[in-house]
């Protein structure tokens, strides 16, 4: 498999008044195309910061992030926008759907930006919400909203799907459904998926699991036979 992402000695410092917080202290990892990666760590370990830098919505203090060999850590604002537009899909813990667009329109909002989008109706079918396409987010449950958020992220047909605690606000059953969709996207469309979570149970569904602690990669776990989401308990 080819490397989709290579991260070298990444650091991130936040200056908060007189205190400097070291969110990342020199992370180096490589991610391959089609992988399902889980980044696991407790609150404040730096996993969200890592995801944000990978996704081009935050800048590192030092170090490099190479996407298909191109260093995005040195990219301009315009280049980062184009990177997010074409290559990355984001899924957030709190969905972040646009409240005055319907489910279909939320998906189309992202698809309209892509050169080779996946049709919104097909994605609605994939996530089991064909009959809810004309509903607004406020008319959907949390799980349904998160499914629409995933469809929106996938709609652009990105190479890399970044998910920040995608089940953090959901109950168990709904969480499993969401993970199933992410897994299906990974398998059906052969796309790379990175999930960050503090839930250790998720580690079993990833091809590889990066354990983050105090801004460093503590360990890397490789699952030869990852479990299906339905088999996981947390």
């Amino acid at each position: 498999m080819d490397k989709i992402l290579e991260i070298n000695n990444l650091t991130k410092e936040y200056i908060m008044g007189e205190v400097t917080v070291h969110a990342l202290r020199g992370v180096s990892i490589a991610i391959y195309e089609g992988e399902f990666v889980v980044i696991l760590g407790p609150s404040g370990s730096g996993k969200s910061t890592l995801l944000n830098i990978i996704g081009g919505i935050d800048a590192p203090t030092s170090g490099d992030v190479l996407f298909h060999g191109k260093n995005i850590s040195r990219a301009s604002e315009k280049e980062l926008t184009l990177f997010r537009r074409g290559a990355v899909g984001f899924v957030f813990q709190f969905y972040n759907l646009i409240p005055n667009l319907t489910a279909r329109e939320n998906i189309a909002l992202a698809s309209e930006l892509a050169d080779d989008p996946i049709p919104a109706d097909r994605l609605l079918e994939d996530i089991g919400l064909s009959d809810r396409g004309d509903h607004f987010p406020s008319q959907l449950s949390g799980g349904q909203q998160q499914r629409v958020a995933i469809a929106r992220a996938v709609g652009k047909n990105p190479s890399l799907l970044l998910c920040d605690e995608p089940t953090g606000a959901l109950d168990l059953q709904t969480g499993i459904q969401v993970l199933r969709i992410l897994k299906d996207f990974n398998q059906n469309y052969k796309k790379t998926v990175m999930i960050i979570t503090h839930n250790a149970g998720f580690g079993k569904i990833g091809d590889r699991v990066f354990h983050v602690r105090d801004g460093l990669i503590d360990s890397i776990q490789v699952n030869e036979n990852p479990l299906a989401p339905e088999e996981v308990s947390w």
Binding site: G55, I57, K78, T81, L82, R84, R85, G86, V88, F90, F92, N96, L97, I98, P99, L109, A110, L113, R152, K156
Partner: peptide, 13 residues
Amino acid sequence: REYATLRVIGLTV
């Protein structure tokens, strides 16, 4: 929040 989401999705300013 909506506009920040749009920026993350890839919309330009």
